[in-house]
Computed example of a mutant assay.
Amino acid sequence: MVRLPLTAAELERGQLLGALLRRARTDRSMFDVAMAANISPETLRKIETGRVATPAFSTIAAISSVLGLSLDEVWSAINPDTQESEEDSALTLRLERLAS
């Protein structure tokens, strides 16, 4: 399967996601957070630096859980111009509950 090139918006969201996760990690080591999220430190490093701009949902859910971030917070941080409808908010809440 051929993967299409990422759009500028996807690359920007990847950068925003990486910055958010770096800030949320504070003084915790990348290794400790990665192990707690059950991912490799290299994967976390690539996400934090924006080299993996569109990581899997389960990966983001695991990292967010370890860092104490809600999926709503993550979504809002990487989509600052998006206004969610009530239906979207309800879906996000259901997904967040499933991830925890």
Rank of each mutant, 00 (worst) to 15 (best):
N79W: 02
T92W: 00
Q15K: 03
A36E: 00
G50I: 01
G18P: 10
L44P: 13
A61P: 13
E48K: 13
D88N: 04
A9K: 01
I39W: 01
A77P: 14
I78R: 02
F57M: 09
L67C: 01
L69T: 00
R97N: 10
T26I: 00
A24Q: 09
T54M: 11
E48N: 11
S64E: 14
N38V: 00
N38K: 14
N79T: 15
V74H: 06
R45A: 13
R28N: 07
V74T: 13
L93D: 14
A99S: 12
R51W: 02
T49N: 06
T82D: 09
S58K: 12
G18L: 01
R45T: 04
D81M: 07
F31E: 13
A53P: 15
F57G: 08
K46I: 02
S40R: 11
L21V: 13
M30F: 01
A90Q: 12
S65C: 10
L69H: 04
L21M: 08
E84M: 14
T7S: 14
V33K: 12
A99K: 10
T43P: 08
K46T: 07
S64P: 09
V52M: 04
I63N: 11
A90N: 06
L95A: 06
S85E: 14
I78K: 01
P5F: 08
T92N: 03
G14C: 03
P80S: 02
A53R: 03
E84N: 11
A56V: 04
K46F: 02
A56N: 12
Q83H: 06
E96A: 10
P80R: 01
L4W: 03
T59G: 10
A56D: 15
L95W: 10
R22A: 05
